[in-house]
Write a protein that binds this DNA or RNA. Structure first.
Lengths: 244, 244
DNA sequence: CGCGGATTTGAATAGTATCAATACAGGTGG
DNA sequence: CCACCTGTATTGATACTATTCAAATCCGCG
């Protein structure tokens, strides 16, 4: 409480948090420097390899996290095994569901993931008396709700071709938020997800995803190398394929 | 600021707010009695008939509202007219998108709707210094996010039959939150939406919705009278049709 | 009682899923 | 360094679900 703000940016913030990307990107980070400094005493950085289950469905969780790097997928699964990805969390997103004992989704590392983990109680205590933290939390949650609603339109009303184009567009824009409507800007990236993940995100089968990617490739909208590396020569063109 | 709490429950709260259902149901109301009392000076109750557009897409909105009665649908529309409902707001839900100038969904009265409306600035001022309000807001937003994610599973992975059953189940449970898994409880209600609305919520066509409702009726899972009145003799049975 | 919108029903079609086989990439051990 | 092996991705043929187009029926209402 009596910490000097200047110190926060120096020795008071341990290497753990200094290297934590969550400090750098403003908007979607639920924690600011001062709060991170308080949390550092109990925080704890861990790495998980792709496929690791971080939180099971209906499982009681004891920690919250910030994503430092990699991608976490939030999924829902039906009894017979049908699966739907309902959210993707990139750095520096906050991971967890305040005010609920159990998670109603399961969280899995989609790629290698680094998390900064801290106990439930620590965050909840901070949430209680920091209006600023609540505010940031509210903002991230509202953003996630907006994204979920955008995705509902995709799931409910778009064709397979539009779905796949929308997905690629979404990822590309996440990599380079600037590239957009106007000029023909090019973006390239390594997709952190498998075709199966794409299918689970889009409510399609792997085969359909693959076929639609082939179509996009043949029409020159995307270039794909080694399955994972994508290049979009013209974002506005891809945008047109995703059906606005 | 110096208002006496006792008064809040009497004369200080005008008829407008005394009758406002938002005061009665705890969880999803973003406003408590004290806050309502402050807002009452600028609040304003209005009624809209089914089909009225409340907020257009990309429109700058100047007011927030609480839903007093009826149902508001939040929709997204594609250029070519394809439409998807991305949220339904019942009393006493809060309606609006804090921290954004424009709405990214359009809001339309699905039935006759009564709203308690107040200016953007009033709420935002309150939000600034009331941690409690932020908290309630955060809770409603998290709940809406949970609901959106549940619905993503429905949109992405369920069959038409399961979608329709899921929708009826969702509405029934909204009417009677108690009725549920265990015994064969019966619930009945008047559906506040048209078949076209159901289709837009489920990502289906009206014809498919109609066919699936017929199937459900013929198998005795639901009874339907005059198109709008539904009775579910056994909620657990309906639950089984919606595919968990 | 008749009108207009909403709903149901029917037949043909289109879009995805399913099933099956092949190709490819990355990692391992010889 | 190469051959193999395993998981991932692509491609093909067929089946099925939901859409589309068309028509009939129902419902609320003047």
């Amino acid at each position: 409480m009596s910490e000097d703000k200047k110190d926060i940016h120096n020795s008071d913030v341990p290497a753990l948090c200094r290297s934590c990307e969550a400090r750098h990107r403003g908007i979607r980070s639920a924690l600011n420097a001062e709060q991170l400094s308080k949390l550092n005493r109990v925080a704890n950085r861990k790495e998980f390899s792709a496929g690791t289950e971080l939180v099971g469905d209906s499982e009681e969780f004891q920690t919250y996290s910030n994503v430092l790097s990699g991608v976490v997928k939030l999924t829902k699964t039906m009894m017979d095994g049908r699966e739907q990805i309902v959210g993707l969390q990139f750095a520096p997103d906050f991971l967890g569901r305040p005010f609920h004992k159990e998670s109603h989704v399961s969280a899995e590392a989609a790629s290698t993931v680094q998390l900064c983990m801290f106990p439930k109680s620590s965050l909840e205590a901070m949430l209680k008396d920091s209006g600023d933290l609540k505010q940031r939390m509210l903002e991230q949650t509202l953003t996630e709700l907006d994204e979920a609603r955008d995705w509902m339109l995709t799931l409910g009303r778009k064709t397979a071709a539009e779905k796949v184009a929308s997905f690629v567009y979404m990822i590309a824009k996440h990599i380079d938020p600037e590239a957009d409507q106007n000029e023909q800007q090019d973006v390239s990236f390594d997709l952190p997800l498998t075709r199966a993940d794409m299918a689970d995100y889009l409510g399609l089968t792997v085969e359909t995803v693959s076929r639609q990617l082939t179509k996009l490739r043949k029409s020159g909208v995307v270039e794909i190398e080694h399955n994972r590396h994508f290049r979009i020569p013209d974002m506005s063109r891809l945008g047109r394929f995703s059906g606005v």
